Amino acid sequence: MGSFSIWHWLIVLLIVVMVFGTKKLKNVGTDLGAAVKGFKDGMKDGTTSADAPPQQVTNAARQDANTVDVEAKSKS
């Protein structure tokens, strides 16, 4: 009663294929694989070596040409 037989899983697989179709299942598998690969690449890029000191922001770096300095005002 607690475990399912191979016939149960074959019937479930057949119903899933009939509902979604093989093309959609293939696309889902491809998208899932790409997402996992992107996650692994992101985790790899996010690591830093223990020898490298943390970067300090200098005044020269703060004066970037693309940065806009604004003052936020609160609503009253």
Score class of each variant (00 low, 15 high):
31 D>F: 11
27 N>W: 05
28 V>E: 04
66 N>M: 06
47 T>K: 09
50 A>Y: 15
57 V>H: 05
16 V>Y: 03
54 P>F: 01
48 T>D: 06
43 M>G: 03
73 K>L: 04
39 F>L: 15
19 V>K: 03
12 V>K: 05
35 A>I: 10
30 T>E: 09
13 L>S: 13
13 L>M: 12
62 R>W: 05
35 A>Q: 09
44 K>C: 00
74 S>V: 14
66 N>S: 07
56 Q>V: 12
65 A>V: 04
49 S>Y: 02
48 T>C: 06
71 E>S: 11
4 F>P: 02
59 N>R: 06
18 M>F: 10
76 S>D: 05
10 L>W: 07
49 S>F: 01
53 P>D: 01
31 D>S: 12
17 V>M: 12
29 G>Q: 03
65 A>H: 04
69 D>T: 15
57 V>D: 04
17 V>L: 12
43 M>E: 04
29 G>S: 04
50 A>W: 15
7 W>F: 13
37 K>Q: 13
55 Q>T: 08
69 D>R: 10
24 K>T: 15
40 K>G: 07
10 L>Y: 07
20 F>G: 03
43 M>H: 03
24 K>H: 14
31 D>L: 11
73 K>Q: 04
65 A>L: 06
71 E>I: 09
59 N>A: 12
25 L>E: 01
56 Q>A: 13
30 T>Y: 10
25 L>C: 01
71 E>T: 13
18 M>L: 15
30 T>G: 06
76 S>G: 08
75 K>V: 14
2 G>H: 03
26 K>D: 07
21 G>D: 00
17 V>P: 00
74 S>E: 11
1 M>I: 15
38 G>V: 01
62 R>N: 06
8 H>Y: 12
37 K>H: 10
44 K>H: 05
73 K>E: 00
27 N>Q: 13
52 A>G: 03
15 I>P: 00
19 V>F: 03
54 P>A: 01
63 Q>G: 03
74 S>N: 09
70 V>N: 06
69 D>W: 14
44 K>G: 00
29 G>D: 02
14 L>S: 13
1 M>T: 11
43 M>K: 06
28 V>S: 11
51 D>P: 02
59 N>E: 08
74 S>P: 03
61 A>Y: 00
44 K>A: 06
47 T>N: 05
55 Q>V: 07
12 V>D: 05
68 V>A: 04
10 L>N: 13
49 S>Q: 02
53 P>R: 02
75 K>F: 12
30 T>N: 11
68 V>C: 04
49 S>C: 02
25 L>G: 00
6 I>M: 09
64 D>I: 03
8 H>V: 08
66 N>I: 01
53 P>W: 00
30 T>F: 10
41 D>H: 09
19 V>R: 00
69 D>P: 04
6 I>D: 13
45 D>H: 06
37 K>Y: 12
1 M>N: 11
51 D>T: 11
38 G>H: 01
72 A>S: 15
56 Q>P: 02
72 A>Q: 15
8 H>T: 08
10 L>D: 14
11 I>H: 07
14 L>G: 11
68 V>M: 04
52 A>T: 07
41 D>N: 09
17 V>Q: 09
75 K>H: 12
38 G>Q: 03
60 A>R: 00
60 A>I: 02
7 W>M: 14
36 V>M: 08
10 L>A: 15
65 A>E: 08
72 A>D: 15
54 P>S: 02
74 S>D: 13
33 G>W: 05
24 K>R: 15
47 T>L: 09
26 K>I: 07
6 I>T: 14
